[in-house]
């Protein structure tokens, strides 16, 4: 793959602002204690990767960041999660407003059964981001360009989004999420349903998105984490075992569990 990207991509993460500040987060699914005492600061304009074996809680934690767990009746969240200093689990917070600022892309591409244009325009429309058609057109184009999809679909915006290839569908979903102008973009294994070429395209895109957003990506592929992220968090059995610069995690893990996982002994 494009190995050029892998090297010399170190950025000075210390200079970034903190976007999400999580303290002592606990998540329960009914009786099950799914996330135990996780504290982590996610940086702005940075790609953070969550890695760990399946069932370790990385996706659960990700879904807490835009309160998607609210849609599951039995999930309970304790602790503090501050977005720009405001607790997103405060009683006064409307998840609808929160999710406009914290977008999400899912494991399987899930374009709506509408036209490509309507898929991207969906968010701006419900949030009232455009004053007229021209503005909406512009938002759509910008989002599609941002998702590196514009050139492929600009002549068939009226066609249905489900007719695209898998990689195109996933980039459409990213464009859809980007169109609402969020500050944080959550990605739950966005490439696991894609072939290697589409994966490479999406990974390249993620790297570009970093300029505008804070990106949090859950991945089961360590190589992917190493390729796209600046910060990496390793989860194991609901605990956040280690969090630090990606290069450090992969080259000098401090915790033996991290090392076992990196070297492929557990997972």
């Amino acid at each position: 793959m494009d190995d050029v990207r892998m090297v010399e991509r170190v950025v000075d993460t210390d200079a970034r602002d903190i976007k999400f500040q999580c303290k002592d987060v606990q998540v329960f699914y009914g009786e099950k204690h799914a996330i135990k005492d996780v504290s982590v600061d996610l940086l702005d304009k940075t790609v953070t990767a969550f890695i760990g074996p399946s069932g370790c809680g990385k996706s659960t934690f990700l879904r807490c960041l835009n309160r998607m767990n609210d849609t599951i009746g039995i999930a309970r969240v304790q602790g503090r999660m501050l977005l720009d200093g405001e607790d997103i689990y405060d009683r006064r917070v409307d998840p609808v407003q929160l999710r406009a600022r914290v977008g999400m892309v899912f494991q399987k591409p899930n374009p709506f059964p509408k036209s490509i244009y309507d898929n991207v325009a969906y968010g701006p429309r419900i949030h009232g981001l455009a004053r007229n058609r021209a503005e909406l057109d512009e938002i759509v184009e910008k989002a599609l360009r941002g998702a590196a999809l514009w050139n492929e679909v600009k002549d068939r915006l009226g066609e249905t989004g489900t007719g695209l290839s898998g990689g195109q569908q996933q980039r459409l979903c990213i464009a859809r999420a980007v169109a609402t102008a969020p500050e944080v973009l959550l990605m739950d294994e966005p490439c696991s349903a894609l072939d290697p070429i589409a994966t490479a395209q999406v990974e390249e895109l993620i790297d570009e998105l970093r300029a505008t957003f804070s990106v949090v990506i859950v991945t089961h592929s360590m190589q992917q984490a190493a390729r796209v992220s600046q910060k990496t968090a390793f989860f194991h059995l609901g605990n956040l075992v280690e969090y630090g610069d990606t290069d450090d995690i992969f080259t000098r893990p401090r915790d033996p569990r991290t090392e076992s996982y990196i070297s492929g002994r557990i997972g």
Binding site: L83, D84, E86, I88, D90, R92, V93, D94, V96, Q97, L98, R101, S115, Y117, H127, G128, L129, A130, R131, A134, E135, D137, E138, I139, V140, E141, K154, D155, L157, G158, A181, E183
Partner: peptide, 30 residues
């Protein structure tokens, strides 16, 4: 929707990036 493609994007005002308001206050639209 096809008319989007026929005309090049005009340099209109960039859509006003919605001013970030506090999450704790419900805005009128919400």
């Amino acid at each position: 929707m096809t008319d989007v493609t026929s005309q090049p994007p005009r340099p209109v005002d960039p859509p006003a990036a919605p001013a970030r308001r506090s999450l704790l206050i419900e805005d009128p639209r919400t």
